[in-house]
Design a protein around this nucleic acid. Structure first.
Lengths: 213, 213
DNA sequence: GTCCGTTTTGCAGACCATGCATTTTTGCAT
DNA sequence: ATGCAAAAATGCATGGTCTGCAAAACGGAC
C-alpha cells in the first residue's frame, strides 16, 4: 500500500517512470475513459468492448489484458482518493477520536466529489441509467473499504483480522457517508453535500447515544 | 415438465395455489438449489448453466426465463427474512430506541442464520471460495436495505426521501451487523455470531459517544 | 373436447472472457 | 546503434453467457 501512494501522482512527462509504464497507464486510462464516456452517451447496453477498443485503437484482446470486464473499465475510481484518505487516517494525531478523524478525512474527499469532476459526474449518469451496474459499483467501493480498514487498524495498532473495531469504525463512518450521499442525490443535490455529511455524523452521535434503550 | 425430478419438489397437498404456480415455484427452486449445491461442491467456475439445467431436467432457455444470470440463481435469499424483520420494526413499541429495535430484530434473524441450514451455509461456502460473487451478493443485500429503510421511515412516520434518519439508522445498524458477520467468517466461525453482534453494537455506542472529538 | 393464455423449448445470433502462440515494443547493456 | 531479453499487444480458437423469436406443450375453464 505504501508504494502505491507515491506512484499515484505521476504525470506523463515524469521521467522517473519508464516509458513502458507511462504507455500502459495511458492505454488503461484511454480505455476506461472511452468506455465511461460511451456508456454515458448511448447507454451501457449499447457499448461493446469492440467499440471501445476501436475508438482507442487497440485490439479487443488488449482490453481484456487490462480489465476483466467491460464494467470494470467504466467503474474505475479516481485512484488517489482512497490512498489520500488512508494517509490522513494514519497520519492524524493519535489522541483524536478515530471516528472524527474518519469524518474529516472523508469530508475532505467529498469536496473533491462535489467539485464534480468529469469522471464522478459521468459515473453518476451511467449508474442512474443502468442499475445493473450497481453490483460491481458496490464491489469497487468494497475494495476501498478494505483499504480504509487496514489504515484504521494501523492507526489503532491492532490486527484487523481479529479485532472488531477497525471494521466497525469504517463501516459506521461509511454508513453516515452513504446516508448523506444517498439523500444528496435523492433530493436533486440541492443541499450542499458537506452539510448533509456533518448532519449525518451529528445524528449518528445522537442516535448511538440512545442505544442503551 | 416431463421429468419426475422436478415433480418431486411439488407439494401436491396445497390446493390454494394452482398447479401451474406450484410447478413454476418448484422449477425455480430446483434450479436455484441445484446451482447453489453444484457451486458449493465443485466451485463457481466449474458450474455451467447447461449442467444445472441438465440436472434439473429443463432446457437452458428455461433457466434464463427464471434468472438473468447464473449468479442470481445461486444468490437467491430466503424471501421471508427481510419481510419478517420489517414487520418487527414496524410493530415494535414506539418508545424504544429505533437502533435497539433494529439490533434485536436483526439478531433474531442471525439466529436463523447461525442455525445455518442448507442455503445460508452453502452460500457462505461459495462466497468464500469465489469472491467474484460478492458484487451481486452485496447488490442483493442492497435491495433488503431499501425495504428496511422504508420500514424505519414508517415507524418514525417520516418521509424516507427527505429525512436523513431512516437511512442513517439502517446503514448504521447494518454497519454493526456487517462488522460482526465479517469477523465471524474471518475467524472461522469460532465465536458465536450473536456474541459478536452484541459486541459490535456495544462498541458502536462507545465509539459514537466519543464522536465529539 | 375445445379454446385461450402461459410456459417451455429449440435455434440463431451477438457478445463476453480466457488460453495460447506469435509478433511488436521497450529497457538496457554493450 | 545494435542486439538481446523481458514485457506488452495481438490474432485466433474456444467455450460460455444471454437475448429474441416462433413453434410446441401445457394448464385451466367453459
Amino acid at each position: 500500500m505504501h508504494f502505491c501512494i507515491v506512484c499515484i501522482f505521476v504525470t506523463p512527462s515524469d521521467p522517473s517512470v519508464s516509458l513502458r509504464e507511462r504507455k500502459k497507464r495511458a492505454t488503461r486510462d484511454a480505455l476506461a475513459t472511452a468506455a465511461l464516456r460511451m456508456a454515458a452517451e448511448r447507454g451501457l447496453d449499447q457499448v461493446t468492448v469492440e467499440a471501445v477498443t476501436a475508438e482507442v485503437g487497440v485490439s479487443v484482446r488488449t482490453f481484456f489484458n487490462y480489465f476483466g470486464h467491460l464494467e470494470d473499465a467504466i467503474l474505475v475510481a479516481a485512484p488517489d482518493s482512497t490512498a489520500r484518505t488512508c494517509r490522513a487516517i494514519v497520519g492524524a494525531p493519535p489522541e483524536r477520536s478515530t471516528l472524527s478523524v474518519l469524518r474529516e478525512a472523508i469530508a475532505e474527499e467529498l469536496t473533491h466529489i462535489e467539485d464534480g469532476h468529469d469522471r464522478w459526474e459521468l459515473q453518476c449518469t451511467v449508474l442512474g441509467n443502468s442499475p445493473s451496474l450497481f453490483p460491481r459499483f458496490l464491489a469497487a467501493r468494497g475494495a476501498d473499504e478494505q483499504a480504509l480498514i487496514a489504515a484504521v487498524a494501523e492507526r489503532l495498532d491492532v490486527d484487523a483480522r481479529t479485532d472488531l473495531r477497525p471494521r466497525l469504525l469504517v463501516h459506521t463512518a461509511l454508513a453516515a457517508v452513504r446516508s448523506a450521499v444517498e439523500l444528496w442525490t435523492a433530493t436533486g443535490r440541492t443541499r450542499p453535500l458537506r452539510a448533509l455529511h456533518d448532519e449525518a455524523f451529528a445524528e449518528l452521535a445522537a442516535v448511538a447515544g440512545a442505544l442503551r434503550d
